[in-house]
């Protein structure tokens, strides 16, 4: 048990910059004015896609997860219009044939910065029940991502090394 505690303590102090996945071909990114079908193609092999203003500025404006796509694809008669929910209408492809990624994404997103500790990241992840955060600089530009999966992998690695 002490070994595990030690490994966790060490992990807490690690900075995001040491563990984050840096922006590269393997981090899924899509501009907000791209088509929904393109996002769906990407979601076949990604759990999520970071939505950015455009590929030049790379400012993060939202995220599309598989559940966001699911909401857009639901039969419209199952959506409830209890209280004038225009937002639901705008997020469904049957309601809005011209809908773009920016219309179906979840926005804004909770972000992390490179100098945060993993302890803070883990508290954030738990508090808002999310498994991954985009890492952004001061201007909100996407630098990479930090995921719960990579945190758990780092923990097991630290645990093994300590033996």
């Amino acid at each position: 048990m002490n070994r595990l505690k030690e490994a966790i303590q060490k992990l807490y102090k690690t900075k995001v910059s040491e563990l984050m996945d840096r922006l590269g071909w393997d981090i899924p990114v899509i501009p907000e004015d791209d088509t929904i079908i393109h996002a769906i193609f990407m979601l076949r092999s990604n759990n999520h896609i970071w939505v950015v203003t455009n590929k030049k500025d790379m400012k993060v404006v939202g995220v599309v997860e598989r559940v966001d796509a699911l909401r857009a694809l639901l039969p419209p008669e199952t959506l409830s219009y209890a209280y004038s929910s225009t937002h639901l209408i705008a997020k469904n492809v049957f309601m809005r044939a011209d809908a773009r990624v920016g219309d179906i994404m979840t926005t804004p997103v909770i972000t992390a910065s490179e100098d945060m500790t993993l302890k803070d990241v883990m508290v954030k992840m738990h508090r808002y029940a999310i498994e991954r955060l985009p890492v952004v600089d001061r201007e909100g530009k996407l630098k990479g991502e930090i995921t719960l999966k990579s945190i758990l992998i780092a923990l097991t690695r630290g645990y093994k090394e300590s033996s």
């Binding site: 419209p76 219009y81 004038s84 929910s85 225009t86 209408i89 049957f94 309601m95």
Partner: peptide
């Protein structure tokens, strides 16, 4: 807008 959106759809 609800009823209108639904009918138009």
């Amino acid at each position: 807008i609800g009823v209108t959106a639904r009918t138009m759809m």
